[in-house]
């Protein structure tokens, strides 16, 4: 029972990270119909700029984290303004735009490499890393903070998308930007917002998960892929389906790592996704989403 609890907890922690990446991928995709390949890089940027502000500049955490979020928001804005928007304006295909975001990921990694170097860095922790035992299961406040942040952001996004007029405009732009524009919605602003918002979510994730994973310039791409696995498993249709996929992958990984070898976790998940694709070729989310370009 106790091992089961530990498994669930570690699965939830990693799962929350994948879910947060998946959720922000789905957010950007929801508004712009483009997979933002740089999404994982925002987690990297979040983790490493925490190192910059808190360790190098020795700012207190309360000041450091907002600074990190400002940096991520700025970079998110730049990605939209310098890559996404020019490509859309010249009528590029969605896949071309995706390669454009991959170029952004490459630029971010390259710049981070110049600033922070190739070594793994210790990321300062906002919450204690000391073990806390609740009902026989040992955890750390940092770990719990990740899960709590994930739950809070889910609630926030749900409220924003489904209970506010602003959320309605986001969903409208996702369905058809041209028609949304005719209804008086500034589609480009909404899309810019989705990029900046996802960047902030990514930065926050990075600051929180950094102490557990360690900060490394090349950590981003792996997280983008995990986030996308979450999205395929759950569904790109809504951020919540993607989040559910992320949690599922986290739990699956923890289980495989516990009973076998963590090395097999990825091939097994990949195999599962492939199998799912054979049974449901368009993914769990159904035909409507996968057939859209």
């Amino acid at each position: 029972m106790q091992t089961f609890g530990i498994l669930i907890l570690s699965g939830l922690t990693n799962g929350s990270v994948y879910a947060l990446v998946g959720l922000s991928l789905a957010m950007t995709y929801g508004a712009s119909r483009v997979i933002n390949f740089a999404q994982g890089e925002f987690v990297m940027l979040g983790a490493l700029s925490t190192v910059l502000f808190v360790t190098t500049f020795s700012l207190p955490m309360v000041v450091g984290i907002p600074m990190v979020l400002i940096v991520c928001a700025t970079v998110g804005f730049l990605v939209e303004r310098l890559a996404y928007r020019p490509l859309v304006r010249r009528g590029s295909q969605p896949l071309t735009i995706m390669i454009g975001t991959l170029a952004c990921a490459s630029i971010m990694t390259g710049t981070a490499l110049l600033i922070w170097g190739p070594n793994q860095l210790f990321v300062p922790n906002a919450f204690s890393l000391e073990g806390v035992t609740i009902a026989g299961i040992t955890s750390t406040p940092q770990q719990l903070a990740i899960i709590a942040t994930f739950a809070f952001l889910m609630a926030l996004i749900w409220f924003m998308l489904y209970r506010t007029t602003f959320g309605l405009t986001i969903r409208a732009v996702g369905i058809d930007p041209a028609v949304a524009t005719l209804m008086g919605i500034r589609a480009e602003t909404i899309i810019a917002f989705s990029f900046v918002f996802s960047a902030i979510v990514g930065g926050l994730t990075g600051g929180l998960v950094g102490p557990l994973l360690g900060g490394h310039v090349s950590m981003g791409i792996m997280l983008t892929i995990k986030g996308f696995m979450a999205v395929i498993l759950g569904g790109m249709g809504s951020p919540f389906a993607a989040a559910a996929g992320g949690i599922a992958i986290g739990l699956l990984e923890a289980t495989v790592a516990f009973y076998g070898n963590s090395f097999y976790a990825e091939p097994i998940i990949f195999g599962l996704i492939l199998m799912m694709l054979i049974i449901r070729p368009t993914g769990l989310l159904g035909e409507w989403e996968a057939n859209r370009k």
Binding site: P94, M222, F270, I273
Partner: peptide, 28 residues
């Protein structure tokens, strides 16, 4: 055979996943 049932972004990501696994095997 299974992967090409996917289109656009999905195909790109699935093939990238496959490559990451090959990379892992080569490394470990």
């Amino acid at each position: 055979l299974p992967v090409l049932r996917l289109r656009t972004h999905y195909l790109a990501m699935a093939t990238l996943m496959f490559a990451m696994i090959v990379h892992d095997v080569a490394l470990r």
